[in-house]
């Protein structure tokens, strides 16, 4: 992979991870987690595993949806 795309993916992963650790609201944590997932995909595609990329792209939202079953907004 060329360098600029790799640096961009690393920045996406690190910002997503940091924001997902330090946020306190569950919805903010899930949004930051999907930034992290967006950074993982160029590494998978660059290795040539397109079938793995399809499977993980279809499976990963299920995990978020299962987690959302116990999320509930604080009533304002």
């Amino acid at each position: 992979m060329n360098d600029i795309v790799m640096i961009a993916s690393v920045i996406l992963i690190l910002t997503g991870m940091t924001a997902a650790i330090f946020n306190r609201d569950p919805f903010d944590k899930l949004i930051s987690l999907s930034v992290l997932i967006a950074g993982v995909f160029p590494f998978i595609v660059e290795r040539g595993f397109l079938d793995v990329a399809i499977a993980i792209a279809l499976i990963a939202p299920l995990s978020t949806i299962f987690t959302l079953m116990v999320c509930r907004r604080v009533q304002v």
Binding site: L30, I31, F41, A53, I54, A57, L58, A60, P61, I65
Partner: peptide, 21 residues
């Protein structure tokens, strides 16, 4: 297929987050 699967998955995730919120 990979690009469409990633896009649809990400959209579905945003949809679920917004609907639950």
């Amino acid at each position: 297929a990979a690009a469409a699967a990633y896009f649809v998955g990400s959209t579905l995730e945003s949809n679920a987050i917004a609907s639950t919120w």
